[in-house]
Design a protein around this nucleic acid. Structure first.
Lengths: 256, 256
DNA sequence: TAGTGGTCTAGACCACAAC
DNA sequence: TTGTGGTCTAGACCACTAG
């Protein structure tokens, strides 16, 4: 009898599915192509839709797929390498390639407790909160909240138009004018808050890379920023010599 | 009639659940405490277990919970800040605090295609592959594969004991002796491969932060490393002045 | 052995986008 | 209106840990 199948199926179905789909993506699909819908795929592989979805979720997490409600599941392009401030500050909007931060608005509000602590301001003290988004390759890849204590920008003109992009630019320029000595940065995994999700065109709870930056001036911590990057489409790059060209996806696809 | 409930329930149940649980974690539970089991929690909140699990998954992703099969769900401690090589290289194992990389083994094998391309070696050419793990606070937080072409370590002694930690140390020392000029780094989200998952004491597919580092020598790219950090427990830190003390969790918990 | 989280099923209905 | 992915249910069984 054909007892070739003595292999124990210790591997979960969704894991095996993910592998199979991943290979199919490499060989049979082009970037941007849309896959058969979930019900069809589930039937084709003989599994429940929930199981199929578990595999798709993993592939989406790894940046291989993109799913949009009402539209379908498409093959995602390789992750975009986004440079996280290498050495210079990036207050000037636009930048050389038009791929930097764009000020959206600026409000005055009390900072969250932990931010307030780092900024050495009271929890009830209002700070300038600048909202910026970062666009790369025509897509919003990050949303940021920058907290600037009033003390850090003493020369800021009195409110002409509060809460507009213009005022956001004022704060940024003033901060830049004062000069910053250095920065401190951390990266961790998070899930998109409702407002960030909206900016990033994702559902709330979508996985994001949270980059927290502390900006130093002579007097101490001048500002703190919390930037939220789309984890599915972004690869954050650091370092002396620009972006790496290879993505993790490409590295591991052919790993032994 | 008490028509107080005109609010549309546009918010998914699991999202609301997550919020409720998150607040409960802040107020009613201590770090390390174990929660009621999933069936009990689901019953208590009047939802299906799958829905409850969706909320728990999010909280685990955010580093608030830790779940272990056969054991239970516990409240996770705040994320550990791990410094990703600030300026100096970290070839010396142990380090001052015993919290650096520990060589595990060293094999000779062909590099994955994309790695080979960056290293400028042929796909079929074998390179030294050093496996290291990083331990912090008594827990393995990262697993790494370091690819070193033979050409980068010309003085490496002939194999005395291939594939042992001793040989791994040899390769690292030799690389260090030759001197490195700089490094290039990228961070992206991934899911743990089977072998990494084992080292990290996680299930395959668990979310990880993949840090790809390129090491430069005078002659070009001397080595490439792919390090896999536990995304649930780690906060990667960069920058001039050490680690940030605040975590994203703490920042946003009280955000408006 | 008992209890936990992990996997899986076969449905159902909903929100959203595009035609 | 149609078709997509997103949410939700009420079960079942499995793999693992610990007593």
């Amino acid at each position: 009898m054909g007892t070739t199948q003595l292999e124990a199926v210790q591997e979960p179905k969704y894991w095996h599915l993910k592998t199979v789909l991943s290979e199919a993506l490499d060989s049979d699909f082009a970037v941007g192509e849309i896959l058969p819908n979930e019900r069809e795929l589930a039937a084709r592989f003989g599994v429940a839709r929930a199981t199929l979805r578990q595999a798709l979720e993993q592939l989406e997490l790894e940046g291989r797929l993109q799913r949009r409600r009402g539209v379908g599941t498409t093959v995602a392009p390789p992750r975009v390498g986004v440079a996280v401030a290498t050495a210079q500050h990036d207050w000037a909007d636009g930048g050389s390639a038009g791929e930097a931060w764009q000020p959206v608005e600026c409000t005055d509000a009390p900072a969250p407790a932990a931010v307030a602590a780092v900024l050495s301001v009271g929890t009830d003290e209002t700070v300038h909160v600048v909202r910026r988004i970062r666009v790369a390759h025509g897509q919003t890849v990050a949303a940021e909240l920058l907290y600037v204590p009033a003390a850090s920008v003493p020369g800021l003109p009195a409110v002409g138009m509060p809460s507009g992009p213009a005022r956001a630019r004022n704060v940024l320029q003033e901060l830049y004018r004062l000069g910053l000595d250095g920065q401190d940065r951390s990266v961790e995994l998070g899930s998109a808050r409702v407002d960030d999700a909206k900016e990033l065109d994702r559902l709330p709870g979508a996985p994001v890379l949270v980059v927290t930056t502390r900006y130093f001036a002579a007097s101490g911590t001048a500002a703190v920023s919390v930037a939220t990057y789309r984890a599915d489409t972004c690869r954050l790059t650091f370092g002396d010599s620009g972006a790496l060209e290879i993505s993790h996806e490409e590295q591991t696809r052919q790993a032994s």
